[in-house]
């Protein structure tokens, strides 16, 4: 495997995992879809191509939709997995503000929430636009609108 892809993988594995986890709320599923998405992405990778994350995120979104279809149900964002015992410190710290943030995030329009999670995970606007089929201007406007709405929801919940 070329070093270029290794660098890409190390840069994006946690971002993709975090994005998928937020979308499906299931750690095991997010982990599995992350792995599977990289496998599919690597299969389509041509050494001469420039690697872009938009294809990876598109593959991941489609893989998640496939899983949802096969299971016959849609699972939306759930509360944080603080009680799963993944990390000892997750049980150690219980933050009220986290649940407020989750509640506020749930109130966002689904696409806006997706845009925001991608942006927070450091995915460039151009790649977000490619992944979600939105123009660069649209991405820019909607991400800020999502942040503004989030702030409004957080203020309302206080």
């Amino acid at each position: 495997m070329p070093g270029q892809y290794k660098h890409f993988y190390l840069n994006y594995k946690d971002k993709l995992f975090s994005y998928l986890l937020y979308k499906c709320g299931d750690r095991e599923l997010a982990l599995e879809v992350t792995q599977e998405s990289f496998v599919r992405h690597l299969k389509s990778y041509n050494h001469n191509d420039q690697i872009t994350p938009s294809l990876l995120f598109t593959i991941a979104r489609n893989a998640l939709v496939d899983v949802y279809r096969s299971r016959g149900k849609f699972k939306i964002v759930e509360s944080p997995e603080r009680s799963t015992g993944v990390n000892e410190e997750d049980r150690f710290i219980v933050r009220e503000e986290s649940s407020l943030m989750y509640e506020a995030m749930k109130k966002l329009d689904e696409t806006d929430r997706e845009l925001l999670v991608l942006a927070v995970n450091g995915v460039p606007y151009r790649e977000i636009g490619n992944t979600l089929n939105l123009s660069a201007v649209n991405v820019k406007v909607r991400i800020h609108r999502a942040r503004t709405q989030l702030r409004k929801f957080l203020v309302e919940s206080e």
Binding site: R27, V86, D90, S98, L116, V117
Partner: peptide
């Protein structure tokens, strides 16, 4: 806060 929440997961 958003980063903290999203990074809470392992």
């Amino acid at each position: 806060m958003l980063h903290t929440v999203l990074r809470q997961k392992a």
